[in-house]
């Protein structure tokens, strides 16, 4: 075990000092409240929490963060911003959010690896949540995506739409899908769609 002696030494030094060594990941530039809002390790903020921080312009702000592809932008914040847009179902800004999510699916749909796939997945699930049956046509093309994670997320998203139009594409994919993970996601989605009548 190569690291053990080095690490034990470090631990002993730290113990003697009585404190930990702060090695915090540097926070991106921007409003600290917004950065904090969109950087939780184990949760995505609720709409009410977002609205407290971002106010009436929350959807526009989230879109701005999600679509910020500048070098200074933070991927973690962007992913959570895409995902947070999925909470604005029934909101006057829903259409604006849905348009942004469709743009993301179009922009990143051809990617095969890396962070952009995470943007794609977050966008698909958010779009399904706020646009229901209208999202099916944007989503079904992703059932043939080369990444099995995207295909599984697509099946999940189609299940979330809750519309019968999602059933046939899922069944068709199920016949040729090689990955067990995706087939199980399709089965879950079909069950969800079936249970919704």
């Amino acid at each position: 075990m190569k690291w053990l002696p080095r690490i034990l030494g470090a631990a002993m030094l730290a113990g003697a000092a009585g404190v930990g060594i702060a090695t915090a990941l540097e926070a991106p530039a921007g409003d600290p409240q917004v950065v904090e809002l969109l950087s939780g390790l184990n949760y995505v903020p609720s709409q009410s929490n977002i609205d407290v921080v971002l106010g009436e312009g929350a959807v526009e702000d989230l879109i701005e963060i999600a679509e910020d592809s500048s070098i200074d932008s933070d991927p973690g914040l962007r992913i959570r911003a895409f995902r947070s847009l999925g909470q604005y179902d029934g909101n006057p800004q829903r259409a604006t959010a849905a348009s942004a999510l469709r743009r993301a699916i179009a922009d990143y749909g051809a990617e095969s690896s890396g962070t952009k796939l995470l943007y794609l997945r977050a966008s698909m699930l958010s779009l399904a949540a706020i646009d229901g049956g209208n999202a099916v046509s944007n989503l079904v093309t992703m059932l043939g995506h080369p990444s099995r994670d995207i295909r599984a997320a697509c099946a999940q998203a189609l299940g979330i739409t809750g519309v019968a139009a999602a059933i046939q594409p899922l069944r068709a994919r199920d016949l040729i899908e090689p990955e067990e993970q995706v087939r199980l996601a399709i089965a879950d989605a079909l069950f969800l769609l079936g249970s919704k009548g």
């Binding site: 060594i21 702060a22 915090a24 991106p28 950065v35 950087s39 939780g40 973690g76």
Partner: peptide, 14 residues
């Protein structure tokens, strides 16, 4: 934010 138990990504290990 320097504490290990800070809830966000941009936290430390103290």
């Amino acid at each position: 934010t320097g504490n290990l138990m800070y809830f966000g990504e941009f936290g430390g290990t103290e």
